[in-house]
Amino acid sequence: MPGGGGNLEMAEADTVPIEEMMERVTTWLKKVFGNKPIPQYQMNEQAVNILFELAEYNEARVRDLSLVIEGLKELSKEYEAEAKHLKRILSEVLDLPSQKLSGKGTMYLDVVVNSAMTLETKDTSLASFICAINEKMSELYTLESENKGMELELKNLMEKLTTALNLETQLEKDLKRTQELIKVKNNRASNRPRDLEFVNAKCQELRSRIEAAETELAATGFDASLSHRSLVSLAEKLNRLQKEIVPLKKKVDKYHDLPANIPLAKVKLEAVRHELNCLDEKFSKALEELTYDI
């Protein structure tokens, strides 16, 4: 079929160098738009591939149409010869020159000739017309199928192109955002040495001031044990001792109920014994009463 060559060329688009593809696309666009300016488009590999395929398809269709036109010209010559032959038959065999035909006869004859030229028949017989009509119907069905396939392919290409353009736009936004972040980080990185230098200078200044203050205090007879560092150390030691005292206090608390000396201890012991004897007597009486009741 005529469109087969275009499909083959589009299938081979991947083997063409990108520079040659761009050159052919530019030439094709100039040919299509003529004196009009070419619309702006993103010059990337995917867009060039799609435009290259469209250019290849368009050029293939143009070549096919050129071949069809040449064929029609040849058929036109053949039909002219056929018309002359029919005129000769009408005038010589039937003794009926075309000038003597009625208006309807001339019209019918023109219709037959034009139909034969349109259907590309070899003659004007009924069998040739039927075969030509069937062939044209078959070609029409094939062309409609190819046209649907081409439309679907073109639709897919346009969708791919739209997707590619959207992706490119998004990538440009991401690239711009990334560049801005890099710029901010670079600014921070460039400021960091300066900040570090300032901090170091400030630390050195504070060390010098501390040393000067310590020297001045030492000159005035300041007791080093009252310095902040010494007080902090003493506070830490105090906290540690307080924690160590806690278990000792718990042990001492157990002995708080004991008498302070031995005589008091003896008195308390006698009181406990007396209380124990009283309890023993009460228990004995209770036991006797229980036995009596039984």
Rank of each mutant, 00 (worst) to 15 (best):
Q179R: 12
K160W: 00
F198N: 11
S145M: 11
E236A: 14
R240N: 11
K237Q: 13
G71T: 07
L51Y: 09
F33N: 06
T163F: 14
L287N: 07
E197P: 00
N114E: 13
E23S: 08
V32R: 13
K202D: 10
E53C: 15
D174M: 09
L90Y: 11
E59R: 11
L101P: 00
L140G: 10
E275Y: 03
L94S: 04
K243T: 09
E270W: 02
D110I: 08
F222W: 07
A81M: 07
D293Q: 09
R209I: 05
G6V: 01
V32L: 11
V272A: 15
V272P: 00
G221R: 01
V112A: 15
M43N: 13
D223S: 14
L101Y: 01
E172T: 13
R63M: 04
E45S: 12
A55V: 02
Y292W: 02
R209D: 08
G221Y: 02
C278K: 14
T121G: 03
V272F: 12
V93A: 10
E78F: 06
Q170P: 00
E216P: 00
L65N: 13
E172P: 00
V111S: 11
I130Y: 04
R194L: 15
N187H: 08
E236S: 11
S98P: 04
L152Y: 06
A189C: 03
Y57F: 12
N147P: 00
K87Y: 06
K87N: 14
E151S: 09
C278M: 09
D174P: 01
P39S: 05
N200G: 10
F222G: 01
T169F: 09
T142I: 07
S284M: 09
